[in-house]
Computed example of a mutant assay.
Amino acid sequence: MSGPLYVPVLPARPHAVGACRRLSRSVREVVRPLWNLPPLPGVASEQVAAMVGKYVGPASAATGRGGWVDAPFGEGAQTLALAEAMADYSEFGPLSPVTGPERAQAQQAAAMATARRSPRGLGVRVPVPAEWDGRLAEGVRRLLDRSGPDLPVDLLLDMGAVRGDRPDAGKEALRALDALVPLAEWRSAALLGGSFPQVTATMLDTGSYEEPRAEWGMWHEVHATGRAYAPRLGYGDYGVQPPAALARPPAPGRKGGPPWGVLSYTTESSYLLFRTVTGGPDRTAVNRGVARRIVGHPEFRGVEAGEGEAWLTDCSDGPLSTGQGVGGATEWLRAGNLQHMTYVVRSLPAA
Rank of each mutant, 00 (worst) to 15 (best):
H220Y: 12
T200H: 10
G160H: 09
V162P: 03
A176S: 10
L157Q: 01
G217S: 13
K171R: 15
G226C: 03
T225E: 15
L183G: 09
W216I: 11
A190D: 04
G170V: 11
D205S: 14
S147F: 07
A130G: 14
A161D: 06
P127V: 14
G139C: 06
P152S: 02
D133C: 04
E211C: 04
G193L: 08
A224W: 04
D178P: 06
L183F: 10
G170A: 11
G148V: 12
E138K: 07
D154C: 01
L177K: 05
T225C: 12
L174D: 13
L143Y: 04
L136G: 12
D205E: 15
D178M: 03
S208W: 07
Q198V: 15
E131S: 13
A189P: 04
S208C: 10
V140A: 13
P129M: 02
D154P: 06
G193D: 00
L151V: 02
D178F: 06
L192F: 12
D158T: 14
T202A: 13
A184K: 02
W219A: 11
L204T: 08
L183S: 12
A137H: 01
G194L: 08
A189Q: 02
D154K: 00
R175K: 15
A169K: 07
G217W: 09
M159L: 11
G164D: 01
L143M: 05
R213G: 01
E221K: 11
E215D: 10
E138P: 03
G139M: 14
H223G: 05
L157I: 07
E185L: 15
L174S: 11
L192D: 02
P129R: 04
A176L: 02
G134E: 14
G164I: 01
L151Q: 01
F196H: 13
E211A: 12
L191K: 09
E211R: 07
H223P: 03
L151F: 01
D133Q: 07
R187W: 08
G193S: 04
R163D: 11
V199L: 01
A161I: 01
S147Y: 02
K171P: 08
A130M: 10
D178Q: 10
M218D: 00
R142M: 09
L144K: 03
P127G: 13
R227Y: 03
W132I: 09
L192I: 03
R163M: 11
P212E: 10
G148C: 12
G217R: 14
M203H: 00
G148N: 09
V128H: 00
G134P: 10
E221Q: 15
L180A: 10
P129V: 14
Q198M: 15
